[in-house]
């Protein structure tokens, strides 16, 4: 029995309130409410909003406007380009192929692409591209340094030790300090050629160049049409022997046309025709004298 005056209301939950509370405490339902429902609501409303063509366009427009607004802020603008570590000609080449117009936003500069395009230049070994504070596009260039002149059918080119053609040579005279190589595939063996040239240093004044024969071995060409045929293996040692022979016997001062070192155990010397004739006559005379 409750007294009529006491206003204490029933604090028990109603049946439906109780059921609702229990539903809200069900773990799966809570997960559903916390994750699935918000996700579905957001995704659904976005989809409905975007289903209209005009809204989509205006959204795209607004997004691109915003992007442009941010990209054209002065903090992100690049106003100049500096090229470090490149020679004058290469630097001009770089500026020409990039053909960038400044000022440009750093958002629009694709630095990896710029780097790739710069590195495509034959004279450049590697390039590092970055945007320096102050809005300057900085290119640090490592150039290839040509070490030999390579004569081909197309003309003279410069080659670095790794066999990369760095550029055309105007004339042989322009690069007097660089040795000359020729022949198919010669550019792929520049280090060996350089070793051969250093081995041939005692003959320095007489050396004209190296010729790659049959894409497998070298011929050292000297002036007066002399030629030293070197083997495939141990070319440097063979050349050393020739140089030693020359020092001892002055071999190359004589009327020798070809010194053939291709067979290491049997070096062969070919005389010039006049020498052969002279030797023939001399031997005739000798034999005639003996015979008479």
């Amino acid at each position: 029995m409750r007294s009529l005056t006491s206003g204490r209301r029933d604090n028990a939950p109603s049946r439906w309130g109780y059921r609702f509370e229990r539903l809200m405490l069900t773990p799966l339902f809570r997960l559903f409410l916390r994750v699935v429902v918000p996700f579905a609501v957001v995704a659904g409303s976005t989809a409905i909003w975007l289903s209209d063509e005009g809204r989509r366009e205006s959204l795209n427009l607004a997004v691109s406007d915003l992007r442009r607004e941010i990209a054209t802020r002065p903090e992100f603008m690049v106003s100049a380009m500096t090229v470090d570590g490149a020679s004058q000609g290469t630097s001009e080449d770089i500026r020409e192929i990039l053909s960038l117009s400044f000022p440009a936003s750093s958002f629009d500069l694709d630095l990896p692409a710029i780097r790739e395009r710069v590195e495509e230049l034959p004279a450049i070994a590697s390039a590092a591209v970055r945007v320096r504070p102050g809005g300057i596009l900085q290119l640090n260039i490592a150039e290839r340094t040509p070490v030999v002149v390579w004569r081909t059918h197309e003309g003279l080119t410069l080659v670095d030790p790794e066999g990369h053609v760095t550029g055309p040579a105007i004339s042989r005279v322009a690069y007097p300090q660089m040795p000359l190589i020729a022949g198919e595939g010669a550019e792929l063996h520049v280090p060996e050629a350089l070793r051969l040239f250093s081995a041939a240093a005692p003959l320095n004044s007489r050396v004209i160049g190296l010729v790659r024969v049959g894409e497998r071995r070298w011929d050292l060409v000297l002036d007066r049409g002399q030629r030293i045929k070197l083997p495939e293996q141990g070319a440097v040692e063979a050349l050393d022997r020739v140089v030693a022979l020359n020092n001892a016997e002055e071999l190359l001062e004589r009327d020798v046309k070809v010194v053939d070192m291709r067979l290491a155990h049997r070096p062969t010397v070919q005389l010039t025709e006049q020498a052969v004739d002279a030797w023939w006559q001399a031997s005739q005379m000798t034999t005639g004298t003996v015979g008479q």
Partner: peptide, 10 residues
């Protein structure tokens, strides 16, 4: 209901 609420599980 109160015990469930405290336990935070149905």
């Amino acid at each position: 209901q109160a015990a469930q609420k405290m336990a935070k599980i149905r």
